[in-house]
Design a protein around this nucleic acid. Structure first.
Length: 290
DNA sequence: AAGATCGCCTGCAGGC
DNA sequence: TGCCTGCAGGCGATCT
């Protein structure tokens, strides 16, 4: 699954391969990929024809293309989405959902998505916190790699929540771009249990876990951001980075890299949380207020 | 109104 | 061997 660093690699690939080009035509091979465009697939395809792409942008795991008509083509890769820049004569991929052809006759842009959790839509740009973003994602907070991300503000917002710290890390309206894998890694690095109540975190702990999330993403981007210059913009997330550098996620029963205790897996929101029982002790139950 | 839960979708691993 | 079940995951919709 593409995490934020992979999505940033895709954004850079789009900037390089499609910015400045004029869309000629759009094929929609699976309407589910356009389900978030409420006016429907025909409207989507019709409005993109003849439009120039100005730039490729990202917030959290959302991508968008700034269009010359002032709108944006918003994209989310979901669990299995890929953006491929392919020569027109390349055979269709098995899970090809949308194809954009260009007026210059050069390579086309293909949205491929096996599980169809991802999708494309057109959205007008609005101003949110001083930055133009597609209206449909104006509720998405800045991610930790955003130059205008405000750590102090996010720390206070995190500590004002009344929930568990991992739920808060996954809440895209608080901080965006943190998925299940990087949440577990950030918690391991900052030695916090996933169920720690947010309103009992010290400022230092809140800073540490947000800082760790930012670090993990930065390291992954450095490790995986090397494949820009091929036409194939790889988005499948299998960069090899995970195998070598995950300390908690997916490591049930294997020794913690800090203390050697076996990593444990707990059920969490219909999926899993991985943590070290020794470095990340379970919080004591909240005392009833008298 | 914030916080919690559900459901979408497909391939694959594991059990028998 | 092949069927079955469970799991993976982000996020909008829908509940409490």
């Amino acid at each position: 699954m593409p995490e934020l660093p992979e999505v940033e690699v895709v954004r850079a690939g789009l900037e390089r391969h499609v910015a400045g080009r004029v869309i000629a035509s759009v094929d929609i091979l699976h309407p589910r990929a356009i389900r978030r465009h409420v006016e429907g697939p025909a409207d989507f395809a019709g409005r993109l024809g003849g439009v120039k792409i100005e730039a490729a942008r990202r917030r959290g795991k959302y991508l968008w293309l700034d269009l010359a008509d002032g709108e944006a083509m918003l994209a989310h890769l979901g669990m299995s989405g890929q953006m491929l820049v392919q020569p027109g004569e390349a055979p269709d991929e098995k899970h090809l959902r949308v194809r954009l052809r260009f007026a210059d006759g050069g390579p086309e842009l293909r949205f491929v998505d096996q599980r169809t959790f991802g999708g494309l839509a057109l959205s007008e740009l609005v101003e949110a916190d001083g930055t133009p973003v597609p209206a449909t994602i104006a509720h998405i907070a800045r991610d930790p790699m955003d130059p205008l991300f405000d750590p102090a503000r996010t720390v206070s917002a995190l500590r004002r929540r009344r929930t568990e710290v991992k739920r808060a890390l996954l809440d895209q309206t608080l901080v965006s771009g943190v998925g299940n894998i990087y949440a577990d890694e950030a918690l391991w690095r900052s030695r916090l249990h996933w169920a720690r109540p947010t309103d009992r975190l010290t400022a230092r702990q809140a800073e540490a876990v947000l800082g760790a999330a930012s670090e993990v993403m930065g390291e992954a981007l450095l490790a995986g951001g090397t494949s820009f210059d091929t036409l194939y913009v790889n988005v499948n997330g299998q960069s090899g980075y995970f195998d070598r550098s995950l300390n908690a996620y997916g490591r049930e029963g294997r020794p913690c890299g800090r203390c050697g205790t076996a990593i444990r897996r707990d059920p969490f929101m219909n999926r899993s949380s991985f943590s070290c029982p020794s470095c990340q002790p379970k919080p004591r139950p909240r005392r009833r207020t008298p």
